[in-house]
Amino acid sequence: MNDHHDHHGTHSDLHSEQGALRGEHPGRAANPIIKVHDIAWLEFQKPDLAAAETFAQAFGFATSLRTRDELHLRGTDAGAPCVIVRRGPRSQYLGAAFTAAEASDVLRLAEATGATSKKLPETIGGMGVDLVDPSGASIRVVADTHKLPSLPAQTPLTFNAGHEMVRANQTQRPLRQPATVQRLGHVVLQSTKYRETLDWYLHHLGLIVSDFLYYPGQRERGPTMSFIRCDRGSTPTDHHTIAMTLGPTNRYVHSAYQVADIDALAAGGELLRDLGYHRSWGIGRHIQGSQIFDYWRDPNGFLVEHFTDGDMFDCTLEPGWAQMTASGLAQWGPPATKDFLGMTPGRESLRELASMVTALRDDNEFDFMRLRGLMKVATS
């Protein structure tokens, strides 16, 4: 800590008890190509669009487009849909789209990468450029897409906090109904080339790191997870728009969708449980990002999160640093489940186990020492 204090002079620019040591990753690129404004939507492929829509509406999405081969799911905020589902033979995550701050940024990014900008389908509108990150994940940066009008939002409850009385002669009776989704908040991805992929996002999209995590006893080897936000200068943005973690496979981990408040989240969870859907982990409050969370599995096994009350940072805050532990994922709430950690016996955990063997043979960042660190995280 002394080393850190000497480096920064004061702790006024930190949100964490611990900042970078001298020579550690700065958490941002010196000269990014562009700075994206926000995450726009995620794309999935699923064989059964009817089942996907049934769960989505129980989860709190509204349907903005439904054809034989395509399903668009939206929140109440104006803008693009949150999720686009395409009909296909098997379930898979297809990629993420980010909104450019200016249309000219799409052209600048295309020119810098040698990619071609193109008109997007009429169902979305606008233009975009398609890229692939070092982990193989598809990334699309878009501009001038059709803007869906806002929908009526769920009204947050009024709270009497301690002795501060703002509600009198009125009861609290939140309905057991879907927790109306307002917007897409973030996506979490796992990468076998974590550091290379992290630097790619910082350089190409102008994202900046809010928090770094490192494996127990391995700080000197560098971080293994980062929570990354958009850089809108003095305008605060979500603590993370994308989070990235080192692992034995390149895969989607989860995505998160904002709801009005904790009662909307909890009552909506009761409804999902009544309908027979599987809660993966929750309800609790995270440490990095501070969100109140509740995680669910959709019928295709994808992990999705309701969240509310997340941290918002502007560009001035420096990255926090912390040790990665399973118990350090939440301030309060039940312990992280085996399902959430991907350790429940079944096809997914067997796939992850097999991929560990493959990853140790391949030329990537997931080596035997990192495997030991990951095992320590799961039991800590």
Rank of each mutant, 00 (worst) to 15 (best):
114 G>C: 08
66 R>P: 03
319 P>N: 10
151 L>N: 06
130 D>W: 12
80 A>Y: 07
228 I>L: 07
179 A>G: 09
95 G>K: 01
85 V>Y: 07
377 V>A: 03
51 A>C: 11
68 R>W: 15
316 T>I: 11
58 A>I: 02
123 T>Q: 10
186 H>Y: 11
112 A>W: 09
335 P>T: 07
144 D>E: 11
95 G>R: 01
260 A>G: 04
377 V>C: 04
348 E>P: 04
175 L>Y: 15
176 R>A: 15
207 L>V: 05
310 G>A: 09
155 T>W: 14
268 G>H: 05
149 P>I: 01
332 W>F: 13
315 C>V: 11
23 G>P: 01
365 E>F: 05
245 T>V: 14
294 D>C: 04
225 M>R: 07
248 P>F: 06
138 S>L: 13
118 K>R: 14
71 L>T: 02
53 E>V: 06
33 I>R: 01
261 D>Y: 05
177 Q>S: 11
178 P>F: 06
363 D>R: 12
218 Q>W: 15
332 W>S: 03
334 P>T: 09
10 T>M: 08
29 A>D: 11
112 A>Y: 10
307 F>E: 02
242 I>S: 03
308 T>S: 10
56 A>H: 09
236 P>Y: 13
313 F>Y: 14
207 L>G: 01
285 R>L: 08
342 G>V: 05
180 T>E: 11
233 G>L: 09
275 L>Q: 13
240 H>A: 04
28 R>V: 04
4 H>M: 14
150 S>R: 06
204 H>Q: 13
247 G>T: 03
207 L>N: 02
227 F>R: 00
16 S>M: 11
268 G>S: 08
212 F>S: 00
358 T>K: 14
100 A>L: 02
194 Y>G: 01
165 M>S: 12
273 R>C: 12
142 V>H: 02
255 S>R: 01
163 H>T: 10
154 Q>W: 13
214 Y>W: 06
125 G>D: 08
346 G>W: 15
372 R>K: 15
2 N>V: 12
377 V>G: 03
227 F>N: 01
